[in-house]
Structures are given as C-alpha cells and as structure tokens.
C-alpha cells in the first residue's frame, strides 16, 4: 500500500506538466511561429468587417472574373466579387467551424474513448459497437434528414460535423487508454481508492494528449472541407456567404481559366494548416511525459 502511494505521489508531481510544457514550447521556434500566425489570423477574422475593402456580397457582373489588379488585389470571382474580401470573410466561417466543430468532436470523442477504454470489458464492447453503428449509418441520408427537420442553420453544421468526427477520435483515445490502463501508476491510483472519474480526468486524459493533438491537427482541415461539402448541399452557410473550403471547391472548377480563384484561397488555407500543424507538433513534443526525463 505505501509503495503504491509512493508511486502515485511520484506521478502526481507531473501536475506541473503544463508549466513545463509551456517552457518547452517557448523553445520551439517553429511552434511559436505557428501560434503567432494563428493568433494573427484570428485577429484578422475578428476585424474583417472593418478591414475588408468591399462587401462580400457586392458584385459587378459586367466585370466577371478579373485577374489581380490595383482595385482588386486578389482578383474577382465569376460574379465580379472581390476575392480578398471573400477570403477574409470566408476565414471567419472556416476558422469558426474548424475550431468549434473540432472542439466538439474532441470533447465527445476523448471523454467517450477514455471511458470505454478505462472501463473495458462489456461496457467497452457496448460503447465501441455503438461507434460501429454510427459509422455505418448512411451519412447522406442523415444530412438530408437534418436539413428537412431543422431547416437551414449554422448550428446544424456543427452538429453534423461533430457527429461524424468524434467517432474516430473516440477510437484512437480508447486504444491509447487500453494500454495506459496497464501502467503501474494507474494501478497505484486505483489501489489508493481514487474514483474512476478522478483517474480518467487526472491521469488518463493528460497522458493521451500527444496522439489526440496530432489527430486534432489532422481533423481541422477535414472539418473545413466537410463544411464546404455540407454548405454545398444546403446545410450550413448560404450564399452569398462563403468559406475557404467553398472558395476552393468552386476554384477547382475554373482552375484552368481563372487560377487565382483557386490559388489564393488554397494558399490561405495551407498557411493556416501549416501553422496549426507546427503548433500541434510542438505541443505534442512539449507535452510528452517521457520528454521530461531528458
């Protein structure tokens, strides 16, 4: 018993984990750069209504798709709307959807996966079979029904995206937790009588952060593209509003004639994702419990 307490205490000291991680992150220049870029983008998105040179819906049909010029720095789309403005406004949608929907998926997925993995046995089997069922249901029908029952609403978008994206997250976390559960310090924590919730919250979840962060950085781009697909189907944002994903998918159609309609939104999305990725990698390294030994 006393040995168990000693093991537990030792593990408990890792609770300065967050401070350590922050120190380590500060040393990672690439990750810091990523963080800066993201903060800048968020500020830009917040200030867009005051900074944008035109209205996002303002069109000039006679102008049509014009290449970049002094009036329109990034050119105009086929309805003669300023691309810079549309990319800026699109960023508001994409960033919001990317972050919020991913956060929703993250929250549900991590908790669900952690509980399933930690409880194991029948509970785990039941919970994972539910995931299988949700995986298997036809997504298109689900979307169509959502639209019909609730009409068109941006909140539905989060719901629809969250509903798909948490599944994989839950799977990954569960796998991680299954192996963590065998570790000594968890057994120690159990033996000193800590409740399952406390253990999941204090030990399991922090230790799965590495893979979760990596997967999250992978999820954000797919969420942004999923948003474009759902908006195209009529769920989510409606024209004349736009998002990066939508701008890119329309840009693909005309990439030979009007390459700027694809390149600039594509570039913007790529920069954001790279920043996110570097930050994610940095965070992962910084949070790696083993790294503290070195």
């Amino acid at each position: 018993m006393s040995e168990a307490i000693a093991v537990y205490k030792q593990a408990e000291q890792g609770s300065s984990l967050w401070q350590d991680a922050w120190h380590r992150l500060q040393k990672n220049k690439l990750a810091l750069c990523g963080l800066m870029v993201l903060i800048l983008e968020i500020i830009l998105a917040l200030l867009t209504p005051w900074l944008a040179p035109y209205g996002y819906e303002q069109q000039d049909l006679a102008l049509g798709a014009a290449p970049p010029s002094m009036e329109h720095w990034l050119g105009t789309d086929t309805l003669g709307r300023d691309m810079l403005t549309r990319i800026m406004y699109g960023g508001r949608v994409s960033l919001m959807v990317g972050f919020i929907a991913t956060a929703v998926a993250l929250l549900i997925g991590v908790v669900y996966g952690a509980v399933a993995g930690y409880m194991g046995g029948k509970v785990d089997a039941l919970m994972m079979r539910l995931v299988d069922i949700l995986y298997a249901l036809p997504f298109m029908i689900f979307i169509i029904l959502l639209m019909v029952i609730f009409g068109q609403n941006i909140l539905l978008l989060f719901l629809a995206i969250g509903a798909v994206e948490w599944l994989t997250m839950a799977r990954i976390v569960r796998g991680q937790v299954l192996s963590l559960r065998q570790q000594e310090y968890i057994e120690a924590a159990i033996s000193i009588g800590l409740g399952p919730w406390t253990i999941i919250r204090r030990h399991i979840i922090p230790n799965t952060l590495g893979p979760v962060i990596v997967y999250t950085t992978l999820t954000i781009p797919s969420v942004m593209l999923l948003e474009a697909f759902l908006s195209f189907l009529g769920l989510g944002i409606q024209p004349p509003q736009s998002s990066w994903g939508l701008l890119i998918s329309y840009g693909v159609e005309t990439m030979e004639e009007y390459p700027w309609l694809l390149i600039y939104p594509g570039l913007k999305l790529s920069i954001t994702l790279f920043a996110l990725n570097f930050l994610g990698d940095g965070l992962r390294d910084a949070l790696d419990p083993r790294a503290s030994k070195d």
Partner: peptide, 10 residues
C-alpha cells in the same frame, strides 16, 4: 442555379 440565384438576389 446557385449563380443565377446569387445574381438575382443582388
């Protein structure tokens, strides 16, 4: 249809 609707909307 989307393009036409957006144009008419404006």
């Amino acid at each position: 249809h989307r393009k036409v609707a957006v144009a008419i909307q404006q």
